[in-house]
Amino acid sequence: MNKNKKQLVFLLIKIVVIILVSIIALGLCAPIYFVVIRSFSPTEELFPIKLFPAEPTLRHFSELLNGVGEYGTPFSRNLFSSLLTALLTAVIQISVVCAAAYVLAKVKAPGIKALNLIIEWSIILSPLTLYVLRYFLMLKMGISDTYFAAVLPLAASPLAVFLVKGYMRVVPDEIIYCARLDGASHFRICFGIVMPVIKPAIIAVSVLTFGELWQYTGELFVKSEAVKPLSGLMSEFSASAESAGIFCALAAVITIPIIVLSAVFGKEIAQTAECAGIRTEHKTKIKAQKSDKAV
């Protein structure tokens, strides 16, 4: 009897906690929900804030797509350059990062350990920290006002390599060892054997990079309107009376694809994150393995 009572209390507490957490989560979704819902609201309904517009409209989106910037460039052109940058980055990043991650995780040769350490420390260099320095460099190289200004630094992202490298531990060393014995080159092993297995990590890294790129503003870098990414338009609008709706529509166009992608590929991202972790005790472990082999 007493035991039953105790269990009942536990169940009740659990239900209450779950309801509370759900409310908090809903509250956290609110800022994004309102931005999205306001992009469907006619301008008259923007004040005061409403949970749902009485007459939803797609006007802001069509104005955004057919709109023309200060210098006569249509916004659809900005959308196109954002998409093109994202695609270019994905292609270059996947091929470059997977190859490097394979070498860092699976090849035992002089210098690899040092490179691993460099990558680990480079995690603290997010794209924004070196942004202005890269701007100077690219001005000098003459590529500051091109798509490459956004693509190349992000393609060689240390965080991406670190994540893919971590995920490599699902690939057993024995397979690679056997393939090497059979005379397969590292190229073949990497692109033939390893790449298909680490698909979740590739997807996760691509989603992360997409999220980063989709909010890349091109501040300083981009001078010509044709190259300007979508997020670069954000600062041109404000919540002034005429453009508040379009501003929300633009933010929605930036926000929704990232949310959809991270929800669809949530499992892959979680699997990749599971392998992310900085192990400081590398040395002792490797030594222990070596002595095992000697025995």
Binding site: P31, I32, G211, Q215, S240, F247, I259, S262, G266
Partner: peptide, 27 residues
């Protein structure tokens, strides 16, 4: 909940920028 929080972290900056953009019509 984890996926919701992660999706917010990846996409939320643009939305918060709208919230804080100023003027009577920002959320």
């Amino acid at each position: 909940i984890t996926i919701i929080l992660f999706a917010i972290s990846l996409s939320g900056t643009a939305a918060t920028a709208v919230w804080l953009s100023g003027g009577l019509l920002d959320p």
